[in-house]
Simulated scan of single mutants.
Amino acid sequence: MAGSKQRLYRISFMNQGQRYELYAREVSHGAMLGFVEIGKPVFGEKTSVLVDTSEEKLKQEFADVERFYVPVHAIVRIDEVKKAGPVRVVEGGGSGSNVTPLPFYTFGGDSRK
């Protein structure tokens, strides 16, 4: 894509009771049913002496990751943005965590029979 502007996405998703907010260059429905494929994670450049420990933790967690898959029911929001902000992990979903998860259905009907 020479000469064209690369897209940037902010992805918020739930993982083990925490809300992750990351930036990436690629987002798609992926090849695995029920998962969102996220590629080329982006982390902010350091412009000050202060070190954000949550961003450093996420950088280490995603250090060698080129793409990862998040269950579609764990996605809170995906936005296309102009520039990356801080990446973060918020315990318990943080403020605005009034997100009600959608019911989870399995293919094949009711298993209680």
Results as ranks from 00 to 15, higher is better:
50 L>V: 12
81 V>E: 02
59 K>N: 03
45 E>P: 08
88 R>T: 09
69 Y>V: 05
91 E>H: 06
11 I>L: 07
71 P>V: 09
38 I>H: 02
46 K>H: 13
38 I>G: 05
113 K>M: 10
76 V>P: 01
95 S>N: 09
63 A>W: 12
57 K>S: 12
28 S>T: 09
84 A>Y: 05
69 Y>Q: 13
93 G>C: 00
50 L>R: 12
84 A>E: 13
100 T>C: 04
98 N>I: 07
111 S>C: 09
87 V>Y: 00
52 D>C: 08
6 Q>F: 08
98 N>R: 13
21 E>W: 01
76 V>L: 01
22 L>F: 07
103 P>L: 07
40 K>H: 10
86 P>D: 14
71 P>I: 04
66 E>M: 09
3 G>L: 12
8 L>W: 01
10 R>S: 09
87 V>M: 06
1 M>S: 11
23 Y>A: 03
84 A>Q: 11
56 E>R: 08
30 G>I: 02
113 K>A: 12
59 K>L: 11
29 H>R: 10
102 L>E: 05
84 A>H: 10
100 T>K: 13
3 G>K: 11
77 R>L: 10
8 L>Y: 01
82 K>Q: 14
41 P>I: 05
63 A>I: 07
96 G>P: 01
87 V>F: 03
50 L>T: 09
105 Y>V: 08
19 R>M: 08
27 V>F: 04
113 K>N: 14
68 F>G: 01
12 S>E: 10
111 S>W: 07
65 V>F: 07
75 I>E: 00
25 R>Y: 06
59 K>M: 15
51 V>G: 01
99 V>Y: 03
71 P>H: 11
12 S>F: 03
81 V>A: 05
70 V>Y: 06
38 I>F: 04
21 E>C: 05
57 K>L: 15
21 E>G: 00
28 S>K: 05
13 F>H: 06
58 L>I: 06
42 V>M: 11
42 V>R: 11
101 P>I: 04
41 P>D: 06
81 V>K: 02
66 E>H: 12
6 Q>V: 11
48 S>G: 15
83 K>R: 15
34 G>H: 04
36 V>K: 07
102 L>M: 05
71 P>D: 03
63 A>R: 15
56 E>D: 12
75 I>D: 02
19 R>Y: 01
49 V>D: 15
91 E>I: 00
35 F>T: 03
33 L>F: 10
28 S>R: 07
99 V>P: 00
40 K>I: 08
68 F>L: 07
12 S>V: 02
77 R>P: 02
50 L>F: 15
73 H>K: 09
60 Q>C: 02
90 V>T: 11
8 L>C: 04
56 E>P: 00
27 V>K: 00
10 R>K: 15
7 R>N: 12
86 P>C: 09
38 I>N: 03
83 K>T: 15
64 D>S: 13
59 K>D: 05
7 R>D: 10
101 P>N: 01
26 E>G: 03
8 L>V: 08
96 G>K: 06
84 A>M: 05
67 R>A: 13
91 E>V: 04
82 K>D: 15
39 G>L: 06
61 E>G: 00
23 Y>W: 09
105 Y>A: 10
20 Y>M: 10
58 L>C: 05
63 A>H: 13
78 I>P: 07
55 E>C: 03
